[in-house]
Design a protein around this nucleic acid. Structure first.
Lengths: 222, 222
DNA sequence: GTTAAGGTGGGAAATGTTCCCACAAAAAAA
DNA sequence: TTTTTTTGTGGGAACATTTCCCACCTTAAC
């Protein structure tokens, strides 16, 4: 019981209970680490942080009904800041970018091994920055071939609003209909469309619809 | 051997040997019916018809490299005409329509029972018109709800040229590009587009693209 | 507190769509 | 055979969309 006081306290945030259990087990195995709380949403996590300030938070990026990125931003901007290690299933660099822009100090892929986790947690607590080796090589790849666009996932490239409109196109709404549904001006829809096309390297609305239908079909929106 | 002379002679046209065997077996079981020939293509069928004029032809609509509808048209427009019973796997009313417009006197779904087949053949030989009950109810449904379009297959509804253009849209070409590829005027493409939309009950080019992409994805053109 | 990013819109020229119309060839119907 | 329908080909003009600029406001980010 005495030793617990010296242990570094870690908060787990993931909406999958089984995943939390797995991570917790790995952490508890380490004599210097302990889990001080578990949360499945941003609000839960913030409550736990208030009453028991953890030394580190392990945050899953894709939380149900809320965004792990926002949590990371909150935690890393507190006084004093709580370092955040993102544990994500997404290899996509767009996620990585969002996480680090929000203040994360590490990005670990979920399929990484258990030993890696404790290693990374220690690194994070020492203030070191970490990414999984796949992520590192992806970043290097992008560094070397900056214009290597091979149909990136629209969700990652577009803002929430843009993606919303993008999908509405794919689901069969035309610009005027989208404007009605969203209660915004057609011109606003047009501007969004412009940005979407720019981001996705599309030359015309025709190509946009084309891409959107394909995407919606792929993700089961149609 | 004497009895055979009085038997009603039936020609089988289907490109699946096993299916022909199945139908033949059912027919031969009936004392009043006999199979006078089998063919897997239109040309084969016409040869058999010349040398042994059957009393009835059972024709599959989807023949390899040729079209059962054309055969039906030929047979039912001979002098004297040879009645045709279409045996098809397609429940779609578009097929039914084409078959009857070509002169078929019956339309039987392949998944119908064996007993049904002999019953229907007798009906056909008596000059009665028959459709499977599913087809009948589909027609009634359409009669009651005329604008209840349940996405019929575009290939069946459109002419060859129209379908060509329809698919080019789905594969990413815009109207001007299609005009270039086909070496025709953009206006011609526009007219085709108009007809396609009319046939498919589409309200806008937008919906056309939408439908086309879905279709191309379904048939593996994308 | 200045910069960057996201969401909101307008104006005007270019482009695309739609609804007419027409004509010729081929196919179907009479 | 002759007539009618279907198919493929196009034009003109009104209308709608797209595209390219631009601007404003708000909310993070640095």
């Amino acid at each position: 019981m005495m030793g617990d006081a010296k242990k570094l306290r870690i908060l787990l945030v993931d909406d999958h209970p089984l995943m939390r259990q797995g991570i917790a087990r790995v952490i508890e195995k380490d004599e210097e680490l302990t889990v001080c709380g578990e949360a499945s949403s941003v609000s839960e996590a913030l409550k736990i942080v208030e009453r028991s300030r953890p030394d580190l938070a392990c945050v899953d990026l894709s939380l149900e009904n809320s965004n792990g990125v926002d949590l990371v931003r909150s935690l890393t901007h507190m006084d004093p800041p709580i370092p955040c290690l993102v544990i994500s299933m997404h290899e996509d660099l767009a996620y990585v970018e969002k996480a680090f822009r929000a203040g994360a100090c590490g990005y670990l892929l979920k399929r990484e091994s258990a030993e890696k986790l404790t290693t990374v947690i220690r690194q994070a607590l020492r203030g070191e920055v970490f990414t999984s080796s796949q992520i590192t090589s992806s970043m290097l790849e992008r560094l070397i071939h900056p214009n290597n666009d091979q149909e990136p996932a629209p969700q990652e490239m577009l803002t929430a609003r843009e993606y919303e409109i993008f999908c509405l196109f794919g689901q069969g709404s035309a610009r005027t209909e989208i404007a009605d549904q969203l209660s915004i001006s057609v011109k606003t829809v047009d501007t969004h469309v412009e940005r979407i096309k720019e981001t996705l390297h599309l030359d015309s609305t025709f190509q946009l619809i084309h891409r959107s239908v394909k995407h919606c079909l792929k993700v089961g929106l149609l």
